[in-house]
Amino acid sequence: MLSRAEFYAVRMWTLLFAAWGALYSIVEFRHIGIDIGTNRRVIDVPALLGGTVVRVIRASETLGSVVVLDVGHGLFHSYCHLSKDRLPVRGDWIGPGERVGRLAGGPSTLPMGHVDYPGSAWGGIHLHLVISTHPESAYSKVAGHRTLRAFRDPADTIREVLSAPAANKSRPFVPQTFEVVEEEVEMKIITSSIGQSLAIGSLVVQFGSPEEVEVALSKGLEIQEVHPETHKRMIAESNLRRHDRLPFVLVYGDPSGTVYTFAGDELNPVYDPSTLPVLKQGAYDTVTWSAEEIRLRLAQQEAARS
Rank of each mutant, 00 (worst) to 15 (best):
S140L: 06
V161Y: 00
E292L: 14
W122I: 01
H114A: 12
D156R: 13
A150P: 01
L203A: 11
I131C: 10
S209K: 14
L240V: 11
G113I: 01
P247K: 05
V181K: 11
V56C: 06
D272R: 15
L250R: 02
L48W: 04
N239L: 12
S218V: 03
A155N: 07
I34N: 10
P107L: 01
S60F: 03
H145W: 10
V185L: 03
I158H: 08
A150H: 04
V278Q: 12
I190E: 00
S78K: 04
P135T: 12
V174M: 15
K188L: 09
R40M: 12
L217W: 05
V53E: 05
V66I: 10
I26H: 07
S108A: 10
V56D: 03
A155E: 10
D244V: 12
D156N: 03
G123R: 02
R58H: 09
R152K: 09
G95V: 11
G195P: 03
Y24H: 15
G105E: 05
S193H: 00
L103N: 02
P154W: 15
T177C: 00
G201K: 12
K169E: 13
V71A: 09
R305F: 13
T286Q: 15
V56L: 01
F76G: 09
E229V: 02
L279T: 00
K232S: 14
G101Q: 01
E292S: 12
D254K: 01
A5K: 14
R86W: 04
N239E: 12
L221E: 01
T258N: 00
V204H: 12
V251S: 08
L110A: 02
R241A: 13
G95M: 00
I194Y: 13
L82Q: 01
T177Q: 09
Q281T: 07
E293D: 15
Y79W: 08
P96L: 06
E225W: 06
A304T: 14
Y252T: 02
H77I: 13
L16I: 00
S193P: 03
T38D: 00
L63A: 07
V100E: 06
D156C: 03
H227N: 13
G253D: 08
G208M: 10
S218I: 03
P135D: 11
S306Y: 14
R152G: 02
M234Y: 10
F151Y: 14
P175A: 04
V204N: 10
G257V: 14
L129Q: 10
T177E: 10
A19Y: 01
E212T: 09
A167R: 09
S132D: 07
F17C: 01
V180P: 04
L298P: 03
R297P: 00
I189L: 08
L279R: 05
I43H: 04
A19H: 06
M12D: 07
Y284Q: 02
R297G: 00
G37S: 07
M12L: 13
V115T: 11
S108Q: 07
V174S: 15
V45F: 02
I131D: 00
T191N: 04
G37E: 02
V115S: 07
P175L: 10
W93T: 15
A164F: 07
F262N: 08
G91Y: 03
